[in-house]
Design a binder for these strands. Sequence first.
DNA 1: ATGACTGCAAAGCCTTTGCACGCAA
DNA 2: TTGCGTGCAAAGGCTTTGCAGTCAT
Lengths: 143, 143
Amino acid sequence: MSEWVEHALSELGRAGYRRGGARTAVVEVLGRHSCARTALEIDDELRAEDRRVGRASVYRALEQLDGLGLVTKVDVGHGTARYEPVRPGGHHHHHMVCDDCGNVLPFEDPELERSIDRLSRRLDFAVAEHEVVLHGSCGCTRH
Amino acid sequence: MSEWVEHALSELGRAGYRRGGARTAVVEVLGRHSCARTALEIDDELRAEDRRVGRASVYRALEQLDGLGLVTKVDVGHGTARYEPVRPGGHHHHHMVCDDCGNVLPFEDPELERSIDRLSRRLDFAVAEHEVVLHGSCGCTRH
DNA sequence: ATGACTGCAAAGCCTTTGCACGCAA
DNA sequence: TTGCGTGCAAAGGCTTTGCAGTCAT
């Protein structure tokens, strides 16, 4: 089992949550992925392994995880939220969205992070989070 | 009238669109703002000046303008799309979103743009657009 | 036993679509 | 006259909420 899954479950416990089946299932699915998933994808994945869970419970679990900082909510457009595990010590990354096939791919770039940090200090605005989304094509249409 | 309004109306004409009332009204509202508006805000603004327009027409006009590159669709999360005029020669900018009051403010930073350009060249991905969103607080809760 | 957790169904948003009428060209 | 443009209403997605039964503690 992924380290993050144990971490998340223990943090949930510490925050006073009970160990319900639906929430645990959501945590386990998230733990299998390094990049952002939608609520629907998580639900489908659970359904595929016959662990049927109410859609509402998926959303509730994600909301709680987000509140505890255990996942990040990523919005790459198209009106569907995505969530991904925040691994302690893990690398901060952003996303490229293929406008041809809808694929979402992660990337990271220290120089970009430095630019944003410097900028954040300069602005008259208390920056808490930042998100960079690149749109374009991953090359899926090449044969 | 804003220069962009004339530009947009003429481009719409060149693209073969007729000069309908609803679309023109949407263009005029957009032209009054330099930063991103939602479809609902545009609709409200029109309603306030007794130029009632069907909600669907607002969405249709925005879609067409986006298709011609006359506006940019900006997604700062919260599940609501925003649109802003693309002024020829205007500065490329990004957005800060106040998580306390929902305010959306523009900023620009040449260094950040350079970082993204360099990064884009390095990636195995054809970057067409990019979007940076800063979340945090604009200070509205200070008294 | 108590109250959190869950699933289901219903309701809420934002956005898109279908359709008949009206207007620009 | 032609068919694009428009408004209205209905339908579509994603997400949230209400509620009663269930389960962890």
